[in-house]
Nucleic acid binder design. Structure first.
Lengths: 315, 315
DNA sequence: GTAGCCGCTGCTCATATGAGCAAGATCTGC
DNA sequence: GCAGATCTTGCTCATATGAGCAGCGGCTAC
């Protein structure tokens, strides 16, 4: 496009988008035919001079969603817009809202829903509307008896999701990580506990988040790991954890011994699942989000625009 | 609008603006009639959920220009968009470009153009294209023999504008501020100098900028005033200077004694002018821009979006 | 209960817009 | 300088969209 036409296309765009003039009127003003004006506007769009943003907490980025699906083979991708986000709390709320919306619209409605726990899952449970389902069995898929912070949020999350969905809940009565492998085996061999794990393994859908591997990890807050232990995991390549299990950028368990002491379903269960919804958002979770998606841990990713774009930058 | 319609309007907007679907197609997807979709889109617009920005260095904000004209009675207002501005240099370049464009398109073409000097005027002289006018007499309207920094830019500005406009230039051979009033009167009484001032007073159009009153003032850089003297002017109410003369927020001379020693045309000449184009942009110049506009020093203001909005906030 | 009112819906019709095409303008290589 | 190629222009025609209006449904005030 010539320089003069570029300038004209900007003048035309101003009149069209800002002043709500018709292309014909613009033609009169700029002394051009209305067809020329139409072409200038098309060029302005094609050159990316026209930026249209939907500014709303529930706005999504459908184009990025499509790109994500195509680049990764995900069944579905939900990408919430970051336009107008004020802080990270706002971003988390938007992502949780999107997850709640997705879950509500999910067909077929899952009979049994396996869930992890954490801030993200808790947020989702808050955003869900009563009546989002009619009779859904919610089952925890990883240990979640919190040691330090906010005792009971793991349980509260499951309870809330189940109650709002007019269904039952089944808790996994175990810590996330046991100190000794013998203890873990003892718990696992308990019939009632084994039954819960079995139910979790047979869930018709999974909803889980993931944590980044750093000193702010939920495992540190909950007292399962020390910051030093996390640092050691990072040294071994950990980018974050999924249902309590720390993985590297290829989705491999980084510390098999630790993993043996971690209580919950196996990652392979998620990889085999027909519906595994990962909700992972926020600037610190770009690496773990990539690992989860690329190693096939989820069939559906719900995330924010920035994380999605980071993922697309190198697929 | 109900909550459910608000959400629908966002979904519709995504499909319309991001996915380029027709309202009819969106109707099929969302199970609505195409008329309902049209109404939802109209509501999304009305609620301000749709933000359209023209991202281009030469983009203007016509809506703000109109508001400025209506609020202030200016003959003309040019407001450059700040969308996509990377730094203040970029902003200055955009403003200067807009001024050059305005000058080039100005009708009737001024026979004699009175100009001030400074970074802004220099930038404009650079942006002007050779042949912007055919035979324009450029005359300096305030003293500008720089003492310290970049000697000769004042002269270079006038020369460049005149040469690119295929015309003549007339310099005002005097410092901006004289140390003693006697010196000023002596210079003023010189026939050739008086002739220049007279030509300046009779110019058919004026193009000038304004400086903010702070330690970064061009008067400090040029060595005419010390930072302490400027601080004293600020204490007296100065918000900036126009053609070298410091004024308060009401457009009044703040220090008559200093003003007596300042060389150039009187502010009243600008206020009486039929075409007085002020080019004032940048975050530090909000106060002086307001004073210039409200005290009638210009008939045309060329500025940036942020400055214009600050001006509109309290008219 | 019901008459009157208000707002939403689905329509008709006029207008605005984009696709496609033929003719003219401009460029390129020899 | 000119033949062919390519790009641009102004058009026709099909489609998308917005304005305006009649009818329906739900709500309020007696």
């Amino acid at each position: 496009m010539t320089d003069i036409d570029e300038l004209r296309s900007i003048r035309a765009a101003e009149l069209y988008y800002e002043e709500d003039k018709t292309q014909d009127e613009i033609g009169t003003i700029l002394r051009l035919t209305r067809w020329k004006v139409g072409r200038l506007l098309a060029q302005a769009k094609a050159n990316g001079f026209i930026r249209i943003e939907i500014v709303h907490p529930r706005a999504r980025r459908l184009g990025i969603e499509r790109q994500l699906r195509e680049a990764t083979g995900l069944t579905d991708a939900i990408v919430v817009s970051t336009a107008g986000v004020v802080d990270e709390l706002d971003l988390h709320k938007r992502t949780a809202q999107a997850a709640a919306d997705y879950l509500t619209a999910l067909r077929p409605v899952p009979r049994t829903l396996g869930i992890s726990w954490g801030r993200t899952l808790y947020d989702i449970s808050v955003q869900l509307k009563p009546g989002w389902a009619s009779g859904v069995n919610v089952v925890q898929i990883n240990g979640g008896v919190s040691l330090n912070a906010r005792p009971g949020t793991a349980a509260a999350t499951a309870v809330s999701i189940a109650q709002k969905g007019a269904g039952q809940f089944t808790l996994l009565p175990s810590p996330a990580i046991l100190e000794r492998m013998e203890t873990k085996q003892a718990i696992a061999s308990d019939r009632s506990v084994a039954a819960v794990l079995e139910m979790g393994s047979a869930a018709s859908a999974y909803l889980f988040s993931a944590g980044q591997a750093d000193e702010d990890s939920a495992h540190v807050d909950s007292g399962y790991l020390t910051p030093e232990q996390v640092a050691e995991l990072v040294r071994k390549g950990a980018v974050g954890d999924v249902v309590g299990r720390f993985i590297d950028s290829a989705g491999q368990i980084v510390d098999p011994a630790l993993d043996e002491r971690t209580f919950g379903i196996q990652l392979e269960q998620l990889r085999r699942a027909k519906t595994a919804i990962a909700v992972i958002g926020g600037p610190r979770k770009h690496a773990i989000a990539r690992s989860v998606v690329l190693s096939g841990l989820c069939t559906v990713l719900i995330t924010d625009e920035d994380t999605a774009l980071a993922l697309l930058r190198e697929p």
